[in-house]
Design a protein around this nucleic acid. Sequence first.
DNA 1: GTGCAACTTGAAGTGAGGTTTAAGTCAACA
DNA 2: TGTTGACTTAAACCTCACTTCAAGTTGCAC
Lengths: 136, 136
Amino acid sequence: MYRLDIAQVSQRSGLRPSTLRYYEKRGLIASDGRRGLRREYDDSVLTRLALIALGQRAGYSLDEIGSLFRPQGGKYELGRLELRKQADKLRGQAHELQATADLLDHVAACTAPSHLECPRFQRLLKDTLTAKVLPP
Amino acid sequence: MYRLDIAQVSQRSGLRPSTLRYYEKRGLIASDGRRGLRREYDDSVLTRLALIALGQRAGYSLDEIGSLFRPQGGKYELGRLELRKQADKLRGQAHELQATADLLDHVAACTAPSHLECPRFQRLLKDTLTAKVLPP
DNA sequence: GTGCAACTTGAAGTGAGGTTTAAGTCAACA
DNA sequence: TGTTGACTTAAACCTCACTTCAAGTTGCAC
């Protein structure tokens, strides 16, 4: 357990000091002491920050991430069901992005005079958009 | 070419009237007339909205989408290179999401007493995070 | 002990993408 | 002709995740 000041945590985490203070205000991390006014962290905060970053990637808001760190109704961790749900959601988003990427590649390759006139584009556009934006 | 009022466009596009007015202010769409004060659209606006939605999915900001609709230096469309670049970027994001989803599934399945103690979790966590958040 | 870079604070600002509000207008129906 | 409900506007407000600012304090090197 090394003691780190805010500049060291900042440097090792890639987060700005202002972000660390902000996270502290939100209850996501805590400094475990002060040297005078100055925060001192022990290096477990880096693991915590990694978990926060993971939570963000997993699509959780800072509020949600914060509540994962505190027991709620006796449970300290997300239910497995909830985690699998979120994983499925992420995979859905991944597929959407793939489809959109394929569409962009088509646009880049298509030689139709205008994409709006290309039947393949029209079909892909309809397929890609979950929202029912185009007329029936 | 049907004429639509804002409520009809809203209903068929799934966007709120306030959003349509906001898009108009940003120069993304235009009503082609007024009946009294009230906007009238023709149904080509729905295609336009579909393109805007596509642009958003493709990771472009409304400003960028707006500028795609107006000629810039004689070109009306994004360069093919730029499109392929964006497609690659999206595929990269898709892979990231996949990796995060896999990590969540592991967490859901892992029986280690605490995830922080699970070596597989630690490794996946390190692998998943591009940011160099964990100590070396 | 003195200087100053690096910290501290609360409050306000940022940017993206809208939404809400207040006050007013008006097309359409009875 | 009167009512009403859907529209109009500009401006303020919202959320999220931070960043910046102004003013004040202080650990540490010299």
